[in-house]
Design a protein around this nucleic acid. Sequence first.
DNA 1: TTGTAAGCGTTATCAC
DNA 2: GTGATAACGCTTACAA
Lengths: 340, 340
Amino acid sequence: MRRVTLRDVAAEAGVSPATASRALQGSALVSEETLTQVREAARRLDYHPNAAAQSLRSARTGTIGVIVPDIRNPFFAEIAHGAERAAREHGLSTLLTNAEDDPVQQRQYIDLLASRRIDGLLLAPQGATADATLLRRTGLPVVFVDRVLDGFEAPSVTSDNEGGILRAVETLAAHGHTRIGYLSGPLSTSTGLQRHHAFLTARERLGLNADPSLIGFGNFQERSGDAIATQMLQEGHPTALLASDSLMTLGALRAMRRLRLRAGRDLAMIGYDDFETFELTTPPITCVIQQPERMGQLGIDLLWSLLCGTTPESIQLPVTFVSRESVCDAPHTHLREELS
Amino acid sequence: MRRVTLRDVAAEAGVSPATASRALQGSALVSEETLTQVREAARRLDYHPNAAAQSLRSARTGTIGVIVPDIRNPFFAEIAHGAERAAREHGLSTLLTNAEDDPVQQRQYIDLLASRRIDGLLLAPQGATADATLLRRTGLPVVFVDRVLDGFEAPSVTSDNEGGILRAVETLAAHGHTRIGYLSGPLSTSTGLQRHHAFLTARERLGLNADPSLIGFGNFQERSGDAIATQMLQEGHPTALLASDSLMTLGALRAMRRLRLRAGRDLAMIGYDDFETFELTTPPITCVIQQPERMGQLGIDLLWSLLCGTTPESIQLPVTFVSRESVCDAPHTHLREELS
DNA sequence: TTGTAAGCGTTATCAC
DNA sequence: GTGATAACGCTTACAA
């Protein structure tokens, strides 16, 4: 089954390939009549232009690469979705890849996408400065989304990590909690780092207990949230738990269930990022909500500006604090009340 | 910033472009010495081969197109993830696109991917026979995953929809339910159609109530599940609810919450597909579980066979029934017991 | 083992 | 308005 080429279309329409090309691109320099003839011919032959030849010639692909660390994490699925929508509105298509939280895979995908001559890259990065060098050498226009990479200057769409954590810790403190267990993400990500830092700052400012067993480091995956919560609940004696992403929140909830501890009664719990069912668990989970779909969309908009030659400003989106029912008072607060 | 081409690498290594090309492909016909020299040169210059030129010349792209109806549905995110993993193992990369439950977008993506000269297509299709024609005309090797398209013969990886629904209905019937409300997916999808048919068959075989108000049609999205459940619970008087995918299950749970009905006590509930938190809701939700990641992986394996020239057999995966706590006895069962 | 050269399908630059 | 024609960067006969 030989492929239909522009030559075939041109022959069918009785014009030269050059004219056919112009017609299909909607160039103004072609007569109304030949235009319709060429279009008709293309339709009849079911012509699909060869994108490889097009981009070889024009040095543009009309494709944006998107690299997320974990497509199964709903947060990043939303980002990908928002990005794809926005890209389509600009007439661009997206090449979505999933680095699976693996810096090596991330590097491979950067190489792959560079080979594919994407017009730009939307990246939720992980890893170290080595990757900044790699990234720089590709010469690609880059926009960061959610996370940024040290040592590489690029416009970014991030979210108010400090504000989100601060708000959560303040809320817990207001309920009398002083022993707050924090399930941190990896410090190798900018979000993990910022949130961790914000937690330390908030904790100090509010004079809360700084027992080191009240911080556990995970990898933003459910399993690590489970493991950290399990250990912490048995050894750190927290009266409240704060997780730094939705999957770790999920893991913590699973651990609590196993230990027969109920959020909102035996223990206060605040999650980061929403999850479809956090509203339907018992109790519904109080959490800090970001705007992942919007982040993806804005990321593409910034990239578009970049492609158009302007240097856009980075954007930091605000977070929302959604108070549901998983935050109870600290036990000693009850005591205090009973005594008074 | 001019791009580095094979010529540059060849010049740097002091050989011809042909030799450089051969060396970089690891051809056996090149001496050990020039091989390392070319590789070194490529590394030094940070050479990224131009995929457009490669595939223009070789008529292969090493890329598989994947079209899913809704990437935000965790079921399809898992499929995409499984597909990507498997593709990478075959040395292929994936171009993931999201049709957003829109046949028009699906068509656009088929065109787009055909233009990109993907080597094959993994498709979870929707829509009518018109799309079968379109698909056929692309001449692409296609494998269906999860769903199939009427009028287009292709290997597929599906799941035992009849078995899953049958098992769910039998379970409810065994608990004394005769008025089972069914939240159907769209009959324009093969899964929606098969499950609906299986529900009718099971219901008839078990002699259950066939009140038409006990079936509602949705679109596999949360909102439709909510709407259908809301109406059905107020007008159909079901004692049990069976939803046909996870998002509609979610919607039903939301509706029940609003109406202050609790699954496993006021009403039996069975979901289709698992959802991260169905285990953590109150009560945990009984459901039929599929194997989406495995479906994606097997889909790519079939496609690979297809690309290698063999015609693989279609695969139907079994489902698992996970009994949790959302299925209670029907009210009249209690009555009967009390009377006896 | 290596080099030369043709050509993949398209678009851009010329002329006409 | 339209048609030759040259290039884009690479692979692969074929020749050396």
